[in-house]
């Protein structure tokens, strides 16, 4: 029988620990597909964050490093400077990348470090049980914004792609989602490009993936995908914010 669908080769057989309907799994798959397609597994080093994807090091077959909370871009920089011909990626949540690690994120982007960053924006701190994230929407109820995020006291959500697009150095910034088949297809393309850019030496590439956290959003997986469509995407518009080689 012909194989029509299989697990990407650069994923291990370790079962994911993610909650049912969580889109971390889809994004892992897309990253692995890009690694497979480019044939770079043997020379890729991945950096896992602190967050629900902390154990990503068990899922990818390439060499992996676990970083402290928010510091993955600095760790990636250290690896890349040691191994400039290798492929280095980080996989980070919004608390990790946009809050505690924002300085590392902006500085790494500013240096135009030739690394790939996969940024999972699920508008919440998933791992610690659903606290407000820098990306939580206005009015969003979380464990630490029980009356809904109030911009007067809790500020406004941060748009990372738009923020980084003000910098000259980054090569590629795109925001995608994975809540529908069409969006997954687009996400796959963007993630592939973010890795290919690095292989071609083009510089800092970041893909922000609007993701779901059904568990802490208190929604079924299906309703969570709807929430992405109706609430997240209007605030976090999808699209390419920077693509240097194409003059954007």
């Amino acid at each position: 029988m012909a194989i029509v669908f299989q697990k990407p080769k650069s994923l291990t057989d370790v079962p994911y620990h993610y909650c049912p309907g969580c889109t971390h799994g889809i994004v892992h798959r897309l990253v692995a597909e890009a690694i497979d397609a480019l044939g770079i597994e043997g020379k890729t080093i991945g950096i896992a964050p602190v967050g629900c994807s902390v154990m990503a090091y068990d899922y990818f077959k390439c060499d992996m490093i676990e970083a402290s909370h928010g510091r993955a871009p600095a760790v990636a920089t250290g690896v890349k400077r040691a191994l400039p011909d290798h492929v280095v990626f980080t996989y980070q949540g919004d608390g990790d990348l946009a809050s505690i690690g924002l300085c590392e994120t902006v500085s790494t982007a500013c240096r135009g470090e030739n690394v790939t960053i996969i940024f999972i924006n699920n508008a919440i701190y998933g791992m610690t049980g659903g606290q407000m994230a820098p990306t939580s929407l206005i009015g969003q109820v979380t464990q630490t914004s029980p009356y809904g995020r109030d911009p007067k006291t809790q500020g406004m959500p941060i748009r990372i792609c738009e923020l980084l697009a003000t910098l000259d150095a980054p090569a590629y910034l795109e925001r995608v989602a994975v809540n529908s088949v069409a969006h997954v297809r687009q996400a796959k393309k963007a993630i592939h490009k973010a890795f290919q850019n690095q292989v071609e030496g083009k510089g800092f590439s970041l893909v922000e993936v609007i993701s779901t956290c059904p568990t802490n959003w208190g929604l079924t997986p299906e309703k969570a995908c709807q929430f992405v469509e109706e609430k997240m995407i209007p605030f976090y518009p999808l699209g390419c914010f920077k693509d240097k080689e194409n003059g954007k």
Binding site: I45, I47, I65, A67, S68, R71, A74, V75, A76, T77, G78, V79, K80, R81, A82, L83, C103, E104, S107
Partner: peptide, 25 residues
């Protein structure tokens, strides 16, 4: 490589990444 990091936190984490590759960092 000489890299002036954005902070001491970043610098030690760059060392962490570099040391993970077996280099003297």
């Amino acid at each position: 490589t000489f890299l002036q990091a954005e902070s001491e936190i970043a610098a030690i984490n760059m060392v962490y990444g570099c040391a993970a590759t077996g280099r003297r960092a």
